[in-house]
């Protein structure tokens, strides 16, 4: 077997573009899923009963569906049901966001629950409304406490974006697979892909460790 690693270098621009798309998807998904996760968590905890039930149903649905199924479903079924024709990118982003929002909502709920009741009471004793107490006192502390968990979710998400390759979003996995098919250099391209994911993912995982140390809660 002869190996030809030059194909990797030849297609460096395509791989770089795929990597950029992977990062963009990760950032965009988190940009949606962090605020949306807070909203869902707050609705689930403090919302009026119908919204509370809806938020719970949402979380339990998307937490327990395989992400790849959600991706397929959003791509093939949603247009049939709604007549909406979103681009592959928008569909992929939506599927990732729906999934990660559900996880983030549970993370936030745990974080908010971990802040003892006296904190909200002290805020309300100053004359704050329940939502002011949440915004100014409870959520900022909860965020600090769950930063390590969010960071782990980030690293998982970075790798899970590869699942939207099945609907032809040209992120790193899709680009690598395409190149593999075009060049027939299976081992080289898959190895290049593994190396790229690892080189990008490892520093992020180390950053998570650092964040975990940095944000240890002191009271």
């Amino acid at each position: 077997m002869t190996l030809d690693w030059s194909v990797v270098w030849q297609h460096r621009d395509a791989l770089a573009a795929g990597t950029a798309m992977t990062f963009a998807l990760t950032v965009a998904t988190m940009a949606v899923a962090v605020p949306a996760g807070i909203v869902v968590a707050v609705l689930r905890m403090y919302g009026p009963p119908p919204l509370r039930a809806a938020a719970t149903a949402y979380v339990e649905l998307f937490r327990n569906l395989p992400l790849i199924l959600v991706v397929y479903w959003a791509f093939y079924v949603v247009p049939i049901l709604t007549g909406l024709g979103l681009s592959a990118l928008a569909t992929g982003l939506a599927a990732l966001s729906l999934n990660v929002t559900a996880y983030n909502a549970e993370t936030f709920r745990a974080g908010i629950n971990s802040i003892r009741r006296g904190q909200a009471e002290a805020a309300m004793a100053l004359g704050m409304s329940r939502s002011q107490a949440l915004r100014r006192v409870v959520v900022p502390q909860a965020l600090r406490r769950i930063t390590p968990v969010l960071a782990s979710t980030w690293v998982s998400l970075f790798k899970d974006t590869s699942l939207v390759s099945v609907i032809a979003v040209s992120e790193l996995a899709y680009v690598s697979m395409q190149l593999r098919a075009q060049t027939f250099r299976v081992l080289e391209m898959l190895t290049a892909m593994a190396v790229l994911y690892w080189l990008l993912g490892y520093p992020q995982a180390k950053l998570v460790d650092w964040i975990q140390r940095r944000y240890q809660v002191t009271e």
Binding site: G118, Q119, E121, A122, A123, M124, A125, L126, G127, M128, S129, R136, V137, P140, Q141, R144, V217, T218, E219
Partner: peptide, 28 residues
């Protein structure tokens, strides 16, 4: 809420906001 603004409360466990400095706690 309006009434609480005119009643100060001090708790057994202080319940200071740990993410804020002393000054920010008092200014909150």
């Amino acid at each position: 809420r309006t009434m609480r603004q005119r009643m100060g409360m001090v708790f057994q466990n202080f319940e200071l906001f740990p993410h804020q400095t002393a000054l920010q706690n008092v200014a909150e």
